[in-house]
Simulated assay, not measured.
Amino acid sequence: WEWVSSAYAPYPYREDDGREEQATGLPRVLRGGSYASTSPHYLRGAMRSRSSPGRRSAHIGFRVARSPVG
């Protein structure tokens, strides 16, 4: 699973509903499954789960990304 910055909230997404506030302490979205997932269904990038921001686990991580240099 991959952490994303948004708090877990029902769809539809609304930019002004507070889910992008970082200091809320609300559960955050996890996306995409992991090596520990029991079904291919969980491996879709659109798959959502949630967890406490302070949780640590071997199957939860983040993706490092950078803008192209050019």
Rank of each mutant, 00 (worst) to 15 (best):
M47V: 11
P12T: 01
E21W: 09
A65L: 11
A9W: 02
E21G: 00
V29Q: 13
H59Q: 14
R14L: 11
P68F: 10
R50N: 06
G70M: 08
A23H: 13
H41W: 11
L30S: 02
Y35K: 07
R28L: 12
W1C: 02
A23G: 06
G45K: 09
G54M: 13
Y42D: 09
G45L: 15
A9C: 04
S67F: 05
S57T: 09
A7F: 10
T38A: 13
P10D: 14
P68Y: 00
A65W: 09
Y35H: 15
R66C: 08
L43I: 10
A65P: 01
F62R: 03
W3V: 00
P10N: 14
P40C: 12
L26R: 15
R19C: 05
Y13V: 11
H59T: 14
G45S: 12
R28C: 01
G54C: 08
S49Y: 15
A7Y: 06
A36S: 10
S52L: 04
H41D: 13
A9S: 08
S34W: 07
E2A: 08
R44C: 10
S57Y: 04
S57Q: 10
M47L: 03
P10Q: 06
S37F: 07
S57R: 04
S6W: 12
A58H: 15
A9T: 15
R56K: 09
G18E: 09
G33W: 03
E21R: 13
